[in-house]
């Protein structure tokens, strides 16, 4: 028999590689983004926590050595109030967003395929306009000289000297306006996969319309609800531009304080300390969701 194996070529891979095996192509494809994101995402995020322990430098930079002064400052009574306001505004805004998004998602999912595309586009289009412009539009609407205020005063629905702008209510309104499309999209994605025959089955078995909706539709889209909750709550907690532009001095959120420390007080460690606090606040819902997902995948959870 002739000697075999005369041709040498690199092996051909079949299917996804098994875990634990690294090859040169994987490194070449992965390293650029890993390096980029470690340098510009992971390291900076860690810096936020580190710099909170540094003293401030009078020139607006970061001083030498380590200190707990910033952490002590954060214990001042002014902060818990701001943190509390940040949390309740975000939570209420999230709840309103979910409440409004549910009927929209349900309506969208039940439309015919053709009209669904158009209505969906209508819903997400405003979300693509510039974020500041949307805030500005509300400033125009709510402006003391604007049509809305004048109309309400004319109808005697509000007194002449009341203002619609520069308070927590305005922040809440614009938060809902800004993040509502974020809530609609994941809920719609979940509702689209929902089997609507289940609702009919529930009605068939004697459930009233609303009851059927609560006991069958809501659990059916629970995954979408969870995602919607996160994508609204997290950016709401980190709001800066909204309270800055439509809020007043008595309705500041953590974001305002961070920006104030950076741009007015030039105290970076203090800003870092506040940001670390915000980061931890954001992590709570993320961890809750990860745990919920894990329970689900372990089985026994809802579909």
């Amino acid at each position: 028999m002739k000697p075999l194996r005369s041709i040498k070529v690199s092996p051909v891979h079949d299917g996804p590689l098994k875990p634990g095996r690294l090859d040169r192509r994987e490194w070449a494809l992965t390293l650029p983004t890993i390096i980029w994101l470690v340098l510009l995402f992971a390291v900076p995020t860690a810096l936020v926590f580190l710099i909170a322990l540094r003293p401030a430098n009078p020139a607006g930079g970061i001083g030498e050595g380590w200190t707990l002064a910033t952490l002590k400052d954060l214990m001042q009574p002014a902060y818990p109030a701001i943190i509390w306001r940040t949390v309740w505004l975000s939570v209420v805004a999230t709840a309103i967003c979910l409440g409004l998004a549910l009927p929209v998602a349900y309506y969208l999912a039940r439309l015919s395929r053709r009209s669904r595309q158009w209505v969906l586009l209508l819903v997400i289009l405003p979300f693509w306009s510039n974020f500041l412009i949307r805030i500005f539009a509300w400033r125009t609407v709510l402006h003391p000289d604007g049509w809305l205020k004048q109309g309400l005063v004319f109808l005697r629905l509000m007194p002449e000297d009341a203002t619609l702008l520069y308070n927590s209510g305005a922040i809440l309104l614009v938060l809902v306006y800004t993040y509502l499309p974020f809530a609609i999209l994941p809920l719609y994605a979940a509702a689209e996969k929902f089997d609507f025959a289940l609702l009919e089955a529930a009605r068939d078995l004697g459930a009233k319309r609303f009851r059927a909706w609560c006991t069958v539709f809501l659990p059916g889209v629970s995954r979408g609800l969870l995602t919607a909750l996160l994508v609204v709550l997290i950016p709401a907690l980190g709001s800066y531009a909204i309270p800055d532009l439509v809020g007043g001095p008595g309705s500041e959120m953590i974001g305002n304080k961070i920006a104030q420390r950076v741009f007015s007080d030039r105290n970076l460690p203090h800003a870092a300390g506040l940001s670390a606090l915000l980061a931890m606040a954001v992590m709570v819902p993320v961890i809750v969701m990860l745990l919920a997902r894990r329970d689900e995948s372990k089985g026994g959870g809802r579909p």
Binding site: K2, L4, V12, D14
Partner: peptide, 21 residues
């Protein structure tokens, strides 16, 4: 040729093509 067998050879017209992509 999508899979390289762990052992043995593939022959076409008497020629070993096992390692050919």
């Amino acid at each position: 040729g999508f899979i390289q067998p762990t052992r043995g050879a593939v022959l076409l017209d008497g020629e070993d093509i096992t390692a050919l992509p």
